[in-house]
Amino acid sequence: MISSTFSFIVILMGFLFSLIGLIIWKKQKITLINGYNNRNVKKEDVKGYTESIGKAYIIMGTTMMILGILGLLNNENYKVVGAIVYMVGVVISIIKFVKTQKKYRTGIWS
């Protein structure tokens, strides 16, 4: 019971991360990211910045949904694969966040 409830929560959170990523990317809603970045990203860089950050959120959300879906299955091997996929997704997302922050000189790299 607890495992399936946790899996549903992870799927919901993954969906929300992906949705927020889509909004940031497609609608260029830089205000959803951080107030500091909103002030320091140049107007001409907003499109590239929001696209990259939005994609990082989508990667994170998608891997969370995969983790949750595989967690619902009654096979321990699938749960391990889901955890590995999620960890890889987190690493890729963090690398994408850091590279984007460095490229646009925001965050701790400004």
Rank of each mutant, 00 (worst) to 15 (best):
I108E: 10
S7N: 08
K47Y: 11
G107W: 04
K29Y: 09
S18C: 15
I20K: 10
S18V: 06
V98L: 06
K79I: 06
Q101T: 07
E76D: 12
L72T: 07
V88D: 08
T5I: 11
K79V: 03
M60A: 12
T31L: 10
M64S: 13
G21D: 11
I92P: 04
V88R: 05
N40F: 11
G35N: 14
M87A: 09
L12F: 04
N74T: 07
L72R: 06
Q101K: 09
I30C: 04
E76R: 04
S18E: 06
G35H: 09
T62S: 10
N38A: 11
Y57V: 03
I66Y: 04
I69K: 04
Y57E: 02
L19C: 15
G54K: 00
S3I: 12
V41A: 03
N40Q: 13
I23P: 05
R105P: 13
G82P: 00
N75C: 05
G21C: 10
I11L: 03
N34K: 13
L16M: 11
G61F: 02
T31F: 11
G21E: 09
K43S: 09
N77D: 05
S110F: 14
V81T: 09
S3P: 05
A83C: 06
I95C: 08
G89Y: 00
I94T: 15
F97Y: 11
I66P: 03
V46E: 00
K96N: 13
S93T: 14
I11V: 04
V91I: 15
F15N: 06
S4Q: 12
V90Q: 05
R39C: 09
E76M: 08
I30M: 03
Y78C: 06
K102P: 02
S3L: 10
N38S: 14
I92C: 08
I53C: 04
K55H: 05
I84T: 04
G68D: 03
F15V: 13
G35A: 13
L19A: 12
K42F: 13
L32M: 12
L70S: 00
N77K: 07
E51T: 14
N34I: 08
T50Q: 02
I108V: 14
G48R: 13
G89A: 00
E51S: 08
N75G: 06
V85D: 03
Y49V: 02
F8N: 15
S110D: 10
I30Y: 00
E76N: 15
N37P: 05
I24E: 02
K102L: 00
I30S: 00
S52P: 07
L70A: 01
V91K: 09
D45H: 15
Y86I: 05
N40S: 05
G71M: 10
T63K: 01
V81R: 03
I23V: 15
Y36A: 11
G82A: 01
Y49F: 14
M87Q: 06
N74S: 15
G48I: 12
N74V: 05
I108P: 09
K26P: 01
N40T: 12
I84A: 05
T50C: 03
Y49I: 06
M1A: 14
I53L: 15
I69V: 15
G107R: 06
V85W: 01
I58G: 02
S52Q: 12
T63H: 04
G61A: 05
I24R: 02
L70G: 02
K42L: 07
